[in-house]
């Protein structure tokens, strides 16, 4: 029969056997990285809006409270997207000729609402409730980031279940005092003791926070 394979075949087949292990393992590892990447989670992605609305200007610079526009945030699951009327409370007087605000005026005149695009979109099988999180002392900026810095709004948290659970398992250090709940900037560096004190202050029972039914009905 003589030699069927060239001497190099020994090395080639050994490399192939190694690849047989490395490729599947590497694929799985790469896939896990991709699933956590901004590309999949939508983190840090600036969503195009009908109007170039700046949260930084309206909150940090001129000091409008979050609840002025997101008016149902304290007593409803949904924070609320303001109707055009809310914009016009100021903009019927201010910057009335600005090109940037033309879609707002048009909406006001025609009576058709502005189609704002969602920045934070959770799956429908997650029953997220804004009011219960605020009542429990979770500040806006804990999940939405430093809104006071954002000229254009983007998603700061990955919004994965892993991320939700990281807080549901140890909520203390993520809570804020009542006075700062609606601050446009997060308060940095809470100690463990402060966290414990806040848990007690808000009367949070941590035992059921990781039950499936806490978020999925």
């Amino acid at each position: 029969m003589a030699q069927i394979f060239h001497a190099r075949a020994n090395t080639i087949i050994r490399i192939c056997l190694a690849l047989l292990l490395i490729v599947p393992a590497g694929t799985v590892a790469a896939w896990m990285v991709v699933m956590r990447s901004d590309y999949v989670t939508g983190r840090n992605e600036t969503v195009t809006q009908p109007v170039m609305f700046s949260h930084r200007h309206h909150t940090a610079e001129i000091g409008i409270d979050c609840r002025y526009c997101h008016s149902s945030v304290e007593d409803s699951a949904f924070a609320g997207i303001p109707p055009t009327e809310t914009c016009m409370t100021c903009h019927s007087q201010l910057f009335t000729e600005a090109d940037m605000l033309a879609p707002v005026r048009q909406s006001w005149v025609s009576g058709t609402r502005l189609n704002w695009n969602r920045v934070h979109d959770l799956p429908d099988y997650v029953y997220f409730n804004h009011s219960v999180h605020l009542a429990g002392g979770v500040a806006c900026t804990t999940c939405h980031g430093a809104v006071g810095e954002m000229r254009l709004t983007r998603q700061v948290a990955p919004l994965t279940m892993e991320w939700c659970l990281s807080c549901h398992r140890a909520p203390g250090k993520n809570l804020s005092p009542r006075a700062t709940l609606y601050d446009p900037f997060p308060t940095e560096g809470k100690s463990a003791e402060e966290g414990h004190a806040l848990l007690a202050e808000y009367g949070i029972d941590t035992s059921g926070l990781t039950d499936c039914s806490a978020c999925h009905r």
């Binding site: 699933m35 279940m161 659970l165």
Partner: peptide, 8 residues
Amino acid sequence: PYPDTMGL
């Protein structure tokens, strides 16, 4: 069993 993004 693998470390998924659901923490499950």
